[in-house]
Amino acid sequence: MARAVSTKQKLVYTVIGWTVGLLIFFPILWTILTSFKTEGEAIASPPSFVLFDWTLENYAEVQVRSDYFKHVMNSIIISFGSTFIGLLIAIPAAWAMAFSPTKRTKDILMWMLSTKMLPPVGVLVPIYLIYRDGGLLDTQIGLIIVLTMINLPIIVWMLFTYFKDIPSDILEAARMDGASLRKEIIHVLIPMAIPGIASTLLLNVILAWNEAFWTLNLTAADAAPLTAFIASYSSPEGLFWAKLSAASTLAIAPILVLGWFSQKQLVRGLTFGAVK
């Protein structure tokens, strides 16, 4: 039960809360503001916060100069592709572990978790060499494979915790009601599992979208997603802050919105169900 809090106390918390919140959010806000400035205003000192000539030209420039749209498509294809393939592989596995667990189920889950603890740099060399020899460097398919594999443990785990929450009574009721296994899956299990599958999808798209070890090491120009593309602005000649801001805003905006929707699932997914 929420207790009555005095208005004064509430006001104090409001001031502190908003101050801290805006401070933490400031770098993002600043990036968004800068993206609407001209390059001159972007580096101006003293900086202008709101009173500048708002312009959209950076957004147009980004596309013209660097084929921005190609990198957006790469990010979309790679993050959704790896997530969909991951789900396809993980759903049967998580299903089996949740509904007909064996003595080894727990061990397998723990082992899957342990693969997530493997530092990527430990397998950088062989993966790089295999990719080089297999023609997978700087290809979308190559990145989809890597990201599918590194996120597979999280996908299996998340699905497992969601599937396990589906009461077995309901599946038994469906069986008593005369549903065949196929109909049980179509009419009962999938509708009940969809929220969990959707959350898993969301979180993994976010993780894949922001992955910046393999995407930086395994791509050059063709398959580079936004993470790698933005990194190219770090070179001195890339010091165009307004354009960098426009590119960054576009790169983070969609995922920020998705992220805001998936806060709860994020906790569950990234702590492997240890905190719900």
């Binding site: 005369g178 549903a179 009419h187």
Partner: peptide, 25 residues
């Protein structure tokens, strides 16, 4: 037919859908 302790109703179906389910099957 079985009535479960937890009732085991299908949460995503209406009352109508729940009662109709065995007949649909």
């Amino acid at each position: 037919s079985m009535v479960f302790q937890s009732y085991a109703l299908y949460p995503h179906m209406s009352v109508r859908g729940n009662i109709a389910f065995p007949l649909k099957m």
